[in-house]
Amino acid sequence: MTTNTKPDRGSVEMNSEECKGCGLCVEACPPKVLRLADRLNRYGYHPAVYAGHGCTGCGICFFVCPEPGGIKVLRRAMEPAAELAAACA
């Protein structure tokens, strides 16, 4: 059993006011850490939101999102050794 003390490798910033709620990012996200919110945004869509943890920073959601600035992806810079460890984990 792993203790989840290590910080996530990545993070996403969802621009919920640009989001049209298509759900492609939710479908595409490999670790499944995105979902459509219950609330509606200003235009009446359920925007995609990040669960807050578990993001690997892979960037897939960025590419499947049809809006230019809908999603911003961040990644943690790692030491090479740490990267390897993370890859093997």
């Binding site: 943690r76 030491e79 740490a82």
Partner: peptide
């Protein structure tokens, strides 16, 4: 552990 840096964001080629 390093800090978070932006890897994917809105392209400059968009207005």
């Amino acid at each position: 552990m390093g800090s978070l840096t932006v890897t994917h964001e809105r392209a400059d080629s968009f207005f």
